[in-house]
């Protein structure tokens, strides 16, 4: 009995892994590119979700993403740091910034935190535009193609990072961190009285989130070969980071990933249809999710669809 249940979960997982590993051999360059940008978005979505588990709703992930992107690109440009090391450096610098930002925003709750994170990303745009000698300004920074333009290698690298994010989230869910994060999210004052140091866990969640978001930024800069402030610090990036997990289902491993797949598909369709404004889907989805499916797709699946399927054999 126990082993049959195990098979039910491990078999599909094994098939999924095999599929992901073989994917580059199965498709052409366009779909490979879609997969790379999709996986990048999944990393951003899951990282946002890690932070959100402590009740901190960031609308400024673009700030951390941009810092990772620029650190990595500038380190390459100035010191010829190899791209993968550059991504790691970008991740670490974003982590460092998050410690600083985390402590500063610690006492802010709810909406105040969110507004401050928006201001953080927007302030970075202004700083970047105004200090072109250091940052490259509005002209941006360019780098040669990652791995000499070998998309397959890029795919495996970003897939490995996604695997790392999923592993970290899984570890969080198995550990006492899960209790600390949930308690802080649900009632910070009560958590505090029960012996949980909210500062410690909020900053920790911020750091983990920033590390992967920064890495994703570094990857993006090399993969895309060209970054400008308006793009990497853009509100659109921050919005994408939050809509995907909210759509899929918060505080789960599968939710952010599922949400990303669907939203990316919709977005790709809209990108072909309209030259501007394809993020309209993000706004619409956000509104609809809050109004009609507050637990996202997974919640819908568990609450409405699963029972539907289950009730059939009984009839």
């Amino acid at each position: 009995m126990g082993s049959s249940i195990r098979w039910k979960t491990t078999l599909p997982l094994a098939i999924l892994c095999a599929f992901l590993l073989l994917f580059p051999k199965l498709v052409g360059s366009y779909f490979l590119h879609l997969a790379v940008s999709g996986i990048l978005a999944m990393i951003l979505a899951s990282s946002w979700d890690i932070l959100a588990r402590t009740g901190q709703v960031s609308v400024g992930q673009a700030g951390l993403f941009g810092i990772g992107a620029y650190s990595s690109a500038l380190l390459y440009q100035r010191y010829a740091l190899p791209p993968v090391l550059g991504m790691l450096a970008g991740a670490l610098i974003a982590t460092f910034v998050s410690i600083f930002l985390g402590y500063l925003t610690l006492r802010l709750r709810g909406i105040y935190f969110s507004i401050t994170t928006i201001a953080f990303a927007e302030a970075l745009t202004v700083i970047w535009l105004m200090t072109p000698d250091i940052t490259g300004g509005a002209m941006g920074v360019s780098t040669p193609p990652l791995f000499g333009g070998d998309r397959e290698k890029a795919y495996y690298l970003i897939l490995a990072i996604l695997a790392a994010v999923v592993a970290v989230v899984w570890l969080i869910e198995q550990s006492r961190l899960n209790f600390a994060f949930t308690a802080i999210r649900e009632n910070e004052d009560v958590a505090n009285v029960l012996g949980i140091n909210p500062t410690k866990y909020k900053v920790l969640a911020f750091m983990i989130s920033a590390f992967f978001t920064g890495f994703a930024g570094g990857f993006y800069s090399h993969y895309n070969t060209y970054i400008i402030p308006y793009e990497v610090f853009n509100l659109g990036v921050s919005i994408a980071c939050l809509v995907m997990p909210i759509f899929g289902g918060l505080y789960t491993i599968a939710g952010p990933i599922l949400g990303t797949v669907l939203i990316k598909a919709i977005e790709e369709y809209l990108r072909v249809t309209f030259s501007y404004g394809h993020q309209i889907a993000y706004g619409l989805i956000l509104v609809l999710v809050v109004l009609f499916m507050p637990e996202g797709l997974l919640g819908l699946w568990r609450g409405k669809i699963l029972p539907l399927f289950r009730s059939r054999p009984g009839r």
Binding site: R176, A180, A191, L194
Partner: peptide
């Protein structure tokens, strides 16, 4: 209840 036991001591 576990939350209290995990962190409160």
């Amino acid at each position: 209840v576990v939350t209290g036991a995990l962190f409160g001591r």
